[in-house]
Amino acid sequence: MDNLFNPETIFGIIGMAVTLAMPYLYAAIGELFDQTAGCYNLGTEGIMMMGAFSAFYVVYETGNLGFGVLAAAIVGLLMGLIMAVISVTFKAEQGISGIGLTMFGVGLSSLLFKTLLNGTVLSVKGFKSIRIPILGDIPYIGDAFFNHNIMVYVAYLLIPIASIILYKTTLGLKIRAVGQNPQAADTLGVSVNKIRYLCVCGGAILAGIAGATFSIANINMFQEKMTNGTGYIAVALVYFSGWKPWRVLLGALLFSFVNALQLRMQVLGINIPSDIAMMMPYLLTIVTLIFVKSRDKPAALAVPYERSEN
């Protein structure tokens, strides 16, 4: 146990948690926009896989990381459009549409991988870490927080950006209105469907980029089903957050920290059964909610909007 409690180890764990949280942040902030506008998207996992593949493929072919992110965003947008058409225009049950979208995305990404890359695991040169001047030189803290790649920094910037958009702009007001009371919003001249399309597609773009972080900003390779349930966890984190951006950050960091901690404990030879250790982040997320209340659900969440005819 002693070797766990030295600053190097502790900040090492924190540094790893900061990286591990990255895909959750992109995907969960995206989902947060969806849900605030009254749609929930269980298709995140499928969108992420499509994002992961398209980013990887484009980077593999062109070597340009910017194009990779762009490809993930575009593919995310297309997947988002499918979701929006089905859940907003066709007013389908959102949970099931999402599961369908996940089946589709996970399947199609594997199929494309088999067809275009012959199913061979390849690697690319991904985003490199950038040490931020001055801040990056602070002992321990610099390494833990200020020596990551650009995609990690952007992920954390999303939190204040999401906060500002949702709480300080007219657009944010409209989004929240559409999620809380679509009838009233409609009466005030806000196009419910337009806002929902915007949020579902925007959220899907972020989910696509979340997938890209796996294949070009962290592990730098592609393998089938590599997101391995991250998309579902990201959706769960939005509920954890009570629809507040900063609590998405809290949830993602908590979850990732416990994961990094248990891995470190295994490496240090602290004797806990590995499977029980793996359970910890999931258990802790549930236990936390017993003590921290999570309410404020958008009132019209999961309810398709039907304009009354009279």
Partner: peptide, 11 residues
């Protein structure tokens, strides 16, 4: 506690 079931069932 009003904890959403999607969150807990996923976990």
């Amino acid at each position: 506690l009003g904890v959403n079931e999607i969150l807990t069932t996923v976990m």
